[in-house]
């Protein structure tokens, strides 16, 4: 029983971080209908930001968090200005190919700058700390990452739902032309959405940097899982992405433990395929 409880806790912790990566993606894919293949690579850049601030200035990842989020936001902004804006009115495949190229560029440029070595943020306020509750071990870095993810998701969801700018984002997602006719500056909306997506993935990268190696391909698997989670949760649905992330985390840990650890991602992808058979718009899509 304690093993099952341990697996559930691990699944929720792992899934919450997946969720935050996916929330960033659902903003640009679900709301703006742009597939950003470089999303995982933005996360990698934020992880490097945290690593270098730690290696050179001995900054703790939690202190580096605003800077890493800002860097990822800037990259999101630049991606919009230099890449997406130019292909916005072209067929959807163009944006997809452009971001795929951008992803390759970012990874190889990171390798060129920082070598392909695997690096870790060795010491932090949280590292090595853990809670033991009735034989269930909870790593504090994972717990903080999960709480940070929940907090960030909540903040983004509230921002999109409650603020005027958030409503402009929703309006643009429904119809760009009509939103423009209503006086919405869609250019700003796109730019801001990309920056917000960057902030989400920047926070996720920071929270992960203490528990996952930093290397040029760090974001690859997270990026891939984020695509699955967004589709599973329903395009553009922030809470949908969050719940789907938790679901994938639980499927990975519980399914992987009992059916074979080598199948843990296969189980997650199988659930995704099955759900799409019955609900093509995802579990929480409309």
């Amino acid at each position: 029983m304690s093993m099952l409880a341990q697996l559930v806790v691990t699944g929720v912790l792992v899934g919450s971080v997946y969720s935050l990566v996916a929330v960033g993606l659902t903003l640009v894919w679900g709301l703006m209908d742009i597939i950003n293949f470089a999303h995982g690579d933005f996360m990698m850049i934020s992880m490097y930001t945290v690593f270098w601030l730690y290696a050179l200035l001995k900054w703790d990842p939690l202190i580096s968090l605003p800077i890493a989020a800002l860097v990822a936001a800037m990259i999101g902004l630049l991606t919009y200005r230099l890449v997406i804006k130019r292909v916005l009115n072209a067929p959807g495949l163009m944006a997809l190919l452009a971001t795929f190229g951008l992803s390759l560029f970012i990874r190889n440029f990171a390798q060129f700058l920082w070598s392909p070595n695997y690096r870790f943020v060795g010491e932090s306020i949280l590292s090595g700390k853990r809670l033991i509750i009735y034989d269930v071990i909870v790593g504090i870095p994972q717990l903080v990452a999960a709480l940070g993810s929940i907090g960030m998701t909540l903040a983004v969801a509230l921002f999109i739902k409650k603020t005027k700018f958030g409503k402009a984002v929703q309006a643009t997602a429904q119809s760009r032309e009509i939103a423009e006719l209503m006086g919405v500056d869609t250019e700003k909306v796109y730019m801001f959405t990309f920056a917000l997506s960057g902030i989400c993935v920047g926070v996720a990268g920071t929270l992960l940097s203490g528990i996952f190696p930093v290397y040029p391909e760090s974001g690859a698997m997270y990026g891939l899982l984020a695509f699955v989670i967004v589709a599973l949760g329903g395009f553009g649905n922030i809470w949908g992405a969050f719940y789907a992330g938790i679901m994938i985390g639980l499927a990975e840990t519980i399914g992987g433990f009992y059916l074979g650890t080598q199948f843990k991602y296969a189980i997650a992808f199988l659930i995704y395929l099955l759900v799409l058979q019955f609900r093509p718009k995802g579990l929480f899509g409309w």
Binding site: M3, I211, M221, E252, T253, G256, F257, T261, K264
Partner: peptide
């Protein structure tokens, strides 16, 4: 006998299997 996927994002359950 614990096999894990290439490009794993975490090894939590693998370690729990080993510990058990």
């Amino acid at each position: 006998d614990v096999k894990y996927p290439v490009s794993a994002t975490n090894v939590d359950i693998e370690v729990q299997k080993i510990k058990a």
